[in-house]
Simulated scan of single mutants.
Amino acid sequence: MSLAALQVCLDREHARAAAAFRLDDELGTHHGIAWLDFVLLDALQSADAAMPDTELAARLGLLRSHLLMRVRPLQKLGLVTCRSDGEHSRSIALSVAGRRLANEARDTAAHVCEQV
């Protein structure tokens, strides 16, 4: 067992957590969203079309149920739209407001990432 390898993983996780904390704080203060919300909005924006929830969940490394828990508040805020594609599938897309917010939040996120 390599304790050095474990320490590398722990150091990376601590750095990721510190960056996520700063991003949450700045994005929340200026745009009312969390870092993971921005990551979700960015994935939808880069797709440039509605995405099946299973594809979006895989892209974000989330279980489908966890993705849907993240999507619901964004849907209530009018940032994303959901359309049922059948009994067990749905497509998720950015709304006009979601696209605008993602663009505005991108500058804030980029600024924080330059600092960390």
Rank of each mutant, 00 (worst) to 15 (best):
56 L>G: 00
40 L>P: 01
19 A>R: 09
96 V>W: 12
54 T>N: 11
102 A>N: 04
22 R>W: 05
7 Q>H: 07
76 K>D: 12
77 L>R: 08
48 D>V: 08
64 R>L: 07
17 A>K: 06
9 C>T: 08
73 P>N: 07
21 F>Y: 12
46 S>D: 15
43 A>N: 11
53 D>E: 12
66 H>R: 09
58 A>K: 08
77 L>M: 10
81 T>K: 09
66 H>P: 02
81 T>D: 12
88 H>T: 11
100 R>G: 04
6 L>M: 08
79 L>R: 03
87 E>A: 13
87 E>G: 06
30 H>L: 14
49 A>V: 13
38 F>M: 06
81 T>P: 02
66 H>C: 06
90 R>S: 09
56 L>Q: 00
48 D>Y: 14
50 A>D: 10
11 D>H: 13
15 A>F: 00
81 T>Q: 13
50 A>L: 12
10 L>F: 10
45 Q>A: 15
75 Q>Y: 14
27 L>I: 06
9 C>E: 15
102 A>W: 00
60 L>Q: 05
94 L>M: 09
20 A>C: 14
86 G>M: 01
47 A>C: 11
93 A>L: 06
54 T>K: 02
37 D>H: 11
42 D>N: 10
18 A>W: 04
43 A>M: 07
101 L>M: 15
16 R>T: 01
83 R>E: 15
97 A>H: 12
49 A>R: 13
37 D>L: 02
21 F>L: 11
98 G>W: 05
91 S>K: 09
93 A>R: 04
40 L>Q: 03
50 A>H: 10
15 A>I: 00
16 R>E: 02
70 R>Q: 11
50 A>K: 07
25 D>V: 02
22 R>S: 09
38 F>T: 03
51 M>G: 00
95 S>M: 11
59 R>N: 06
26 E>R: 12
